[in-house]
C-alpha cells in the first residue's frame, strides 16, 4: 500500500486489511476523516490490498 495522510507520504504504513482498520491503526477517528483508494472515496469496510494507493484526508478542523 502506498499511503498518504493529509498529502504527506507515510514511509512505513501500518498493516490493515480495511479502511476502518487503517484509520484505527493511524490513531485517527472515523468521524474526522475521508479515505480514497485509487482515487475513489471508499466506505469503512472497503478492502485494501498491497498495490493500492490510499489517501487519508482529515476533514474536521477548527477555524
Amino acid at each position: 500500500m502506498r499511503l498518504s495522510v493529509d498529502g504527506k507520504s507515510i514511509k512505513n504504513p501500518p498493516k490493515a486489511k480495511t479502511v476502518a482498520e487503517l484509520i484505527s491503526a493511524l490513531g485517527l477517528s472515523e468521524e474526522e476523516v475521508l479515505v480514497k483508494i485509487n482515487g475513489k472515496l471508499s466506505p469503512n469496510s472497503a478492502s485494501i490490498s498491497g498495490e493500492d494507493e490510499v489517501k487519508v484526508m482529515r476533514v474536521i478542523f477548527g477555524g
Binding site: A20, E30, K40, N44
Partner: peptide, 24 residues
C-alpha cells in the same frame, strides 16, 4: 470492529459500490 459491521461496502439504496459510510 463495530464500524465494519455497520459498513457493507454496498449502497443501501441501489446496491452499487459505496463511496462513504455514514455511521449515524
Amino acid at each position: 470492529m463495530e464500524s465494519d459491521k455497520q459498513s457493507s461496502g454496498l449502497c443501501a439504496k441501489c446496491g452499487k459500490p459505496a463511496a462513504i459510510t455514514l455511521r449515524y
